[in-house]
């Protein structure tokens, strides 16, 4: 059992996922007492060892945004290569823009995460019928609205102030995307805002659950801070 637990942890680390607190814990724990602690801590874990650990604290939050950007960049990349019926030239141009901006966000977050970024993930966009404008826009609206609300939700539980203002720069651009997608869906609609005319705040756990409908990779997100 001890071996299984250890190999589980090693697999996570080999997968490119760095968990500073657990690594420190392992370093500090040593000896028989350490093994006992390790076993009792590990016994709470239910996710299979094959699940990709997204980290904890701020790392988990940035990985959440990073995974989201993996999905949106793939969504637009696919939309560019298999355009929906009736697409205009303008719409193609703007979807290339959307793709490239989502890639910029994705790669930027990856740089911030550095070695702590989850590996390339496998997306699952099978719910989207790319040839059908209605289907594509429906999912694009869901994912763009999620992006906007995700930043605000992350902000509530992010421990460090370091990246907050840069996240704001990205959030407003994603709101431009969301506005555009809603406008294509129904001209003059903006998405659902609250009674003060404000955009949504989406709790990380809620956002991650929505996101899981678009990814094949199994993630261990139990240490994702939320509210």
């Amino acid at each position: 059992m001890e071996i299984n637990n250890k190999s589980g942890i090693q697999e996570n680390e080999q997968a490119g996922n760095f968990n500073p607190s657990r690594r420190q814990f392992l370093t500090l724990a040593g000896g028989v007492a350490g093994v006992g602690l390790l076993l009792s801590a590990a016994s709470c874990r239910k996710t299979p060892a094959s699940a990709t650990y997204i980290g904890e604290g701020d790392i988990a939050l940035l990985n959440y945004l990073y995974i989201l950007k993996q999905v949106t960049s793939k969504l637009y990349a696919q939309a560019v290569s298999t355009t929906y019926n009736g697409i205009t030239k303008e719409e193609v141009v703007l979807q290339v823009d959307l793709r490239d901006q989502e890639v910029a966000h994705r790669e930027f977050l990856k740089r911030l995460l550095d070695t702590k970024a989850v590996k390339e993930i496998a997306t699952d966009l099978s719910q989207v019928t790319f040839a059908d404008k209605k289907s594509f826009l429906n999912h694009a609206c869901i994912l763009e609205d999620l992006s906007v609300g995700a930043y605000a939700g992350v902000l509530r539980v992010l421990a460090s102030d370091k990246y907050k203002l840069t996240l704001a720069k990205m959030a407003s651009v994603d709101a431009r995307h969301a506005g555009y997608m809603h406008d294509l869906q129904s001209h003059g609609s903006f998405g659902s805002l609250d009674g003060n005319g404000l955009d949504k705040v989406i709790a990380p756990s809620t956002g991650f659950a929505t996101l899981e409908g678009y990814i094949e990779t199994k993630f261990d997100a139990r240490k994702l801070p939320t509210f």
């Binding site: 906007v148 930043y151 605000a152 902000l155 509530r156 907050k164 704001a168 959030a171 407003s172 651009v173 994603d174 709101a175 431009r176 995307h177 969301a178 506005g179 555009y180 809603h182 406008d183 003059g188 903006f190 998405g191 805002l193 609250d194 005319g197 404000l198 955009d199 949504k200 705040v201």
Partner: peptide
């Protein structure tokens, strides 16, 4: 004030939707 900052995010995002239109 982090809660106010979140509301500023929400406000900015709403304006960005308008601007996009």
């Amino acid at each position: 004030n982090n809660e106010l900052l979140i509301q500023a995010f929400q406000l900015q995002a709403a304006e960005a939707r308008h601007c996009s239109f």
